[in-house]
Amino acid sequence: MNKEHFLIELKIYLKPLTNQQQGFILNKYETIFKERLADGETEEQIAKSLGKPRGIAEEILQEFDITVPEKKLERDGWQEIQPIINNDDHYEDTPEHPYDDAFRSYERPQRNGFTRFCHVVGVLAFNFLFMFWMIFAFIMVLFSCWLVAIVLLFSPILGGISIFSGFNDGAMFQLFVSIFLSGAGIIGLLILTPLTKFFGKILKRYLQWNIHVLRGEI
């Protein structure tokens, strides 16, 4: 066993002591190694003459009324001991959950009755005088556009009926016009579909905002 191995193993067994006490003892034995190396001895000879690190640690720990506990070998061959803790002074801190702030319950803002009444009346008046009519108008426009697009989509049926009823130049022209209008209807449907979905999302968020305000959550 060389000096490095000796001091490392000794430090492991002295783990129940404080860092300051460990440092003092390790410096003492490192000085012994330096002095005896200067006299011509090898590290192995010095370590053998000093004895096993565990025995040295046991004698030192006995001076502090500490018993070296039994320990298990780790996979890498090193032995680990844990400091003995006085049960009288031992306590456990309850660990804080890392998402306490994230999961903290929502508290509604406290408002007096008059402020609450003003909020409710203000929202209802704004909706009745402005937003209700604006939303109604937009819904009617969307409904009209959808109706027109659907009629244009099925306009070739009218062209086909005109041909079967009486084939002439006017019937052919009407068929080509109906096919063109059907294409316009398809384009209109492609535009109206995402537009209607977007309007639905906006309307849903606005209704949710109204509910939050009426409940006093905002």
Results as ranks from 00 to 15, higher is better:
3 K>Y: 12
3 K>D: 06
9 E>F: 14
10 L>W: 10
13 Y>E: 03
17 L>S: 11
23 G>R: 12
23 G>W: 03
23 G>P: 01
26 L>S: 07
27 N>E: 11
27 N>Q: 07
27 N>K: 13
29 Y>E: 04
42 T>F: 01
48 K>M: 07
49 S>V: 05
50 L>S: 07
58 E>K: 14
61 L>Q: 00
64 F>A: 00
71 K>D: 07
76 D>E: 04
78 W>C: 00
84 I>E: 06
85 I>T: 04
89 D>K: 09
89 D>W: 03
90 H>C: 07
93 D>G: 02
94 T>W: 02
95 P>D: 03
96 E>I: 12
98 P>R: 02
102 A>K: 06
103 F>D: 10
106 Y>F: 08
109 P>E: 03
109 P>C: 00
112 N>G: 15
114 F>E: 13
116 R>F: 07
120 V>Q: 01
124 L>E: 04
126 F>N: 11
129 L>I: 08
130 F>S: 11
132 F>H: 04
142 L>Y: 13
145 C>P: 00
146 W>N: 07
146 W>R: 06
146 W>C: 09
151 V>H: 06
151 V>M: 11
153 L>M: 08
161 I>Q: 10
161 I>D: 00
162 S>I: 04
163 I>C: 10
164 F>P: 02
164 F>E: 00
165 S>M: 01
169 D>P: 02
170 G>D: 10
178 S>M: 12
179 I>A: 08
179 I>K: 09
181 L>Q: 03
181 L>I: 04
185 G>A: 04
185 G>K: 01
186 I>S: 09
188 G>F: 03
189 L>M: 13
189 L>Q: 06
190 L>K: 02
191 I>H: 00
191 I>C: 08
198 F>V: 13
201 K>E: 14
201 K>M: 09
206 Y>F: 10
214 L>Y: 09
218 I>T: 11
